[in-house]
């Protein structure tokens, strides 16, 4: 209730040009981006992005290369802070506390927000240790808790049946698609508030891609997911909301069905009909 009233109050402050929050989304938000700008050194990559992330829904970020969708995604767990010369302005508020995660300690933010990268990047360790990595980093020692959470995460990532007999073997023995699902399990094991997926299937074949999409559909009721994708069909298949970005700006944001069937902006229409991008 407090979330809603806060949000309604906030919407009135938004710039009149953008109407970022579809009505259907207002009940429950996991996070809200407010006038977020971002600079790589002198280059501005994000320009006053305002966007709501619905609680336990899948939000897709689409747009042509260089539009800033990955940059926006990586802002959510402060990956940019690893490299010198990057700068943010604006807010990404995490609900329910309404903390601006740009002001929080980046290590704290990453404990709460999980990320899966474009290329599968398992650690050179066993399958079990890969999934347990986040919990170990958080100092979890209890063996029972560890193995329960590892199993749950592997089940969530639809990998349990394939690896349950070889948890102690190296993760490098898995296929590319399995490795990516392992990385998803690794991100899920600490039970993050938001799961970030940065083009998680761009390095995978169609069958492995389908498995990843299926598991996203399975976990969407328990996790808030933000996914960056090059593949519009993928966004249409698995997301509840879609944001179209162009040259660092958010052009249009709507429930996925609406955005793909009745885009309001010419740029969006051109992109989804394949005129460019």
């Amino acid at each position: 209730m407090t979330q809603k009233s806060f949000h309604d109050q906030h919407v009135t402050q938004l710039s009149p040009k953008t109407e970022p929050t579809p009505n259907t989304q207002r009940e429950s938000l996991a996070a809200e981006v407010r006038k977020l700008s971002f600079w790589y050194g002198e280059t501005q990559a994000l320009k006053e992005i305002t966007l709501s992330i619905a609680y336990r829904k899948v939000t897709a970020l689409i747009g042509p290369s260089g539009c800033g969708k990955s940059t926006l995604l990586r802002s959510f767990n402060r990956m940019h802070d690893l490299y010198a010369g990057n700068r943010y302005s604006g807010e990404i508020c995490l609900f329910p506390e309404n903390h601006n995660l740009i002001d929080l300690d980046p290590f704290m933010v990453r404990l709460r927000i999980g990320m899966v990268f474009q290329k599968p990047n398992p650690f050179p360790k066993s399958i079990f240790e890969n999934v347990a990595a986040g919990l170990r980093i958080q100092g979890v020692q209890n063996k029972k808790l560890l193995s329960d959470r590892v199993e749950q995460a592997l089940r969530d990532a639809a990998l349990w049946e394939e690896v349950k007999d070889r948890l102690s073997q190296s993760a490098y023995g898995l296929s590319g698609g399995q490795q990516q699902r392992l990385c998803i399990a690794r991100a899920l094991a600490p039970q993050p508030e938001i799961l970030l997926l940065d083009e998680p299937t761009s390095a995978l074949d169609p069958i492995a891609t389908a498995k990843v999409e299926d598991l996203i559909t399975e976990i969407r009721h328990r996790f808030t997911v933000i996914i960056v994708t090059h593949n519009m069909q993928q966004a249409a298949r698995i997301s509840d909301f879609t944001a179209y970005m162009h040259l660092g700006k958010l052009i249009e944001f709507a429930p996925t069905g609406e955005l793909f069937t009745t885009p309001q902006e010419t740029l969006t229409r051109d992109y989804i009909t394949g005129r460019f991008g």
Partner: peptide, 26 residues
């Protein structure tokens, strides 16, 4: 590789955890 570090940082590891648990063993 950079993505190994990003994987560790992405889980909330601090610098010393990243170095000790993932970079040095590799």
């Amino acid at each position: 590789p950079l993505d190994l570090r990003e994987a560790a940082y992405g889980l909330g590891a601090d610098k010393w955890q990243t170095v000790r648990l993932y970079v040095l063993p590799a």
